[in-house]
């Protein structure tokens, strides 16, 4: 009897949890407006190093920036175009260019800290595009 009770309580918990998280997700999806907040798909730069990610959502919807906060002064509209520039480097960021305009330690976290927040690496990129994470090192068996 006790066991059944336990299962019922647990089940109820899990169920509500599932419903709640589903609702949250739905809300997030419908609230996001690409015209206001920019493309929902993340921008990924693969040069000069693999790979760096940028999420419009974090910067616009969550942080409250407008399109013209960055476009076209800091970044051109074309997604991922910055990586073709010679000066798209960390050194340049430290001088206040590109991401470094805000990521200077006062407006937002400095660009020489928290590297892996943006640098998702080869592994992160592979995961994002749904490739196998074969680079994982330990695959067990092939």
């Amino acid at each position: 009897m006790k066991k059944i009770l336990l299962f019922m309580v647990l089940g109820a918990f899990l169920l509500t949890g599932a419903i709640l998280s589903a609702e949250e997700k739905k809300a997030a999806d419908t609230d996001y407006d690409e015209d206001t907040y920019g493309p929902e798909a993340p921008i990924v730069w693969t040069k000069p190093v693999e790979s760096v990610v940028f999420q419009h959502k974090t910067h616009t919807m969550d942080a409250g920036l407008d399109c013209d906060s960055c476009h076209d002064d800091i970044f051109v509209m074309e997604a991922g175009a910055a990586q073709e520039n010679e000066d798209f480097t960390m050194a340049s960021l430290y001088e206040g260019n590109y991401c470094g305009s805000c990521h200077d330690g006062s407006t937002a976290f400095a660009s020489d800290t928290r590297c892996t927040t943006c640098h998702i690496g080869v592994r992160g990129h592979a995961r994002m595009i749904g490739g196998d994470s074969k680079e994982g090192g330990e695959e067990g068996h092939h």
């Binding site: 330990e138 067990g140 068996h141």
Partner: peptide
């Protein structure tokens, strides 16, 4: 049991396989 077990690694098996 993989070499770097218990370190909170991502995309790393809990247990290896062999067939």
């Amino acid at each position: 049991v993989p070499h770097y077990h218990g370190m909170g690694l991502v995309d790393y098996p809990d247990l290896l396989t062999y067939v």
